Simulated scan of single mutants.
Amino acid sequence: MSAGPKDMEALFGFFNEIGIISQLSGHAFEKAMPEGMTLAQFSVLNHLCRLGDGWTPHRIARAMQVTKGAMTGTLKHLEGKGLVVVSPDPSDGRAKRVAITDQGRAMRDACIGAIAPMMQEFVQEFPATHIAGALPVLAAVRAWLDGRRN
Rank of each mutant, 00 (worst) to 15 (best):
S25Y: 13
G13E: 14
L45P: 00
I21R: 07
L24C: 03
A32G: 09
K31T: 07
N16T: 11
I20E: 05
S43N: 09
H27R: 10
L45W: 11
Q41I: 01
L24M: 07
H27L: 12
I21F: 11
F15M: 15
L39V: 01
A40C: 04
G36M: 07
M33W: 02
M37T: 03
L45Y: 11
R50Q: 13
I21M: 11
L24D: 09
Q23M: 12
S43A: 12
A32P: 07
K31N: 02
E17Q: 14
Q23T: 06
F29R: 05
E35F: 04
C49M: 11
F42I: 01
T38F: 09
L45R: 11
G26Y: 03
G19T: 09
M37G: 03
N46L: 04
M37P: 00
A32N: 06
G19Q: 10
E35S: 12
G26R: 00
K31R: 11
Q23I: 00
S43L: 10
Q23Y: 10
F14P: 15
H47G: 04
L48S: 10
G13I: 10
H27Q: 08
L39W: 00
F29I: 00
L39F: 09
G19F: 15
E35H: 08
H27G: 02
R50A: 08
E17F: 14
T38K: 06
F15A: 07
S43D: 07
G26A: 02
M37D: 09
Q41A: 14
S22D: 13
E30S: 00
L51F: 14
L45K: 02
H47Y: 14
L39R: 06
V44E: 12
A28S: 06
F42Y: 15
Q23F: 04
F15C: 11
H27D: 13
R50C: 05
I18D: 02
A32T: 14
L51R: 14
F29G: 05
S43W: 03
G13W: 04
G36K: 13
V44R: 08
I20D: 12
V44Q: 08
S22T: 15
N16L: 15
V44S: 07
S25M: 15
T38I: 10
M37W: 07
A40S: 09
A28F: 06
M37A: 08
M33S: 10
G26V: 07
E30C: 01
F42K: 10
V44K: 03
F42A: 01
S43C: 06
S25Q: 10
Q41S: 13
F15R: 11
H47F: 15
